[in-house]
């Protein structure tokens, strides 16, 4: 299995953004998707850094794609999205609007925010030019298996959300702005202060979600440490690692080590919890009863018993 680094979901300062992609040049991943996914207002702050990042990654032998926005509404966003096709780099479609701009027979990839739940949809997208599809994170393992099997017949590589806060919802309303008593048009970029999202907890102080402008994520960081063999057996081609602050190249190396057998089952989770104290992990969408569940917690309980 290969590793893909998905687009950064958060709003980072331009220099942090640029050095992140510099650091990926030497990270053990084969594919990088970059660009702005969540909010078009963020783009002007780092847009001029994108060409250099692409060049660096291509020179390092990585496959590179640029993402579309997750929710395209405004005229400006439509224009921006149409122009993305002309850049000459593979586009990762995260809003089906992109299909209105992509010429027939132009190969493209499909991101996790497009609803690919079944073989019919996968087949339609494959016929239209999709070569790689990252499945929606909420899909359980048995459906991943069905789709990976179908993908093999259609020559579409199937990717699964492997690591990082889960994208759970996207809205026309900006919650960071709302929290600060502002509207979306006058947000004053409140999301910039939360480079991994802002923690949202329940009335009992239980950590639950993370706010990221118009996007809502899980508090937990998805981690497929315990499902690597199952996913490989299912025929999954790649795992997606979603950017976060800290030494992300080290996170990539952990997963690469796990795929190559140099890190044992449970080793990725243990190393993550040590490197990022206080974070919580989940893998429930794949094998649990709810998305928030973590099978590491279950096996831990067994050991104690």
């Amino acid at each position: 299995m290969d590793l893909t680094v998905g687009p950064n979901q958060f709003f980072w300062k331009a220099e942090d953004w640029a050095s992140f992609y510099d650091s990926l040049a030497t990270a053990p991943v084969s594919r990088v998707v970059l660009g702005e996914l969540v909010c078009s207002k963020r783009l002007p702050f780092f847009q001029d850094r994108i060409p250099a990042a692409i060049e660096t990654l291509l020179a390092a032998g990585k496959e590179v794609a640029v993402t579309s926005l997750a929710l395209i509404t405004l005229k400006r966003e439509r224009k921006l999205s149409a122009e993305l096709v002309e850049a000459g780099i593979e586009v990762e479609v995260n809003d089906l609007t992109m299909l209105a701009y992509l010429p027939e027979k132009t190969p493209f990839s499909v991101g996790p925010l497009v609803n690919v739940y079944n073989e019919g949809t996968l087949g339609w997208l494959a016929a239209r030019g999709a070569t790689q599809v990252c499945l929606p994170p909420e899909l359980p393992l048995d459906q991943v298996r069905s789709l990976a099997r179908a993908g093999a017949d259609m020559r579409v590589r199937i990717e699964v959300w492997g690591h990082g806060r889960l994208p759970l919802a996207i809205s026309g309303r900006c919650y960071h702005a709302r929290l600060h008593g502002r509207t979306k048009d006058n947000c004053q970029f409140a999301c910039e202060d939360d480079p991994d999202g802002l923690e949202v907890s329940t009335l009992e102080g239980q950590k639950f979600l993370a706010m990221n402008g118009v996007q809502t994520l899980s508090d937990t960081f998805a981690c497929v440490d315990h499902q690597v063999e199952l996913l490989r057996d299912a025929g999954v081609s790649a795992l997606r690692l979603s950017p976060q602050t800290g030494d992300f190249a080290a996170v990539c190396a952990l997963y690469r080590g796990r795929l190559d057998g140099r890190v044992s089952r449970g080793g990725v989770a243990a190393a993550l919890l040590e490197a990022y104290p206080g974070i919580r992990l989940s893998d429930g969408f794949l094998t649990g009863a709810t998305g928030a569940e973590w099978s590491g917690a279950r096996s831990g309980a067994k050991v104690e018993a």
Partner: peptide
């Protein structure tokens, strides 16, 4: 159609 808050909390 693009929200999985419910399955995250309840399955």
């Amino acid at each position: 159609g693009r929200c999985s808050l419910s399955s995250y909390a309840t399955g």
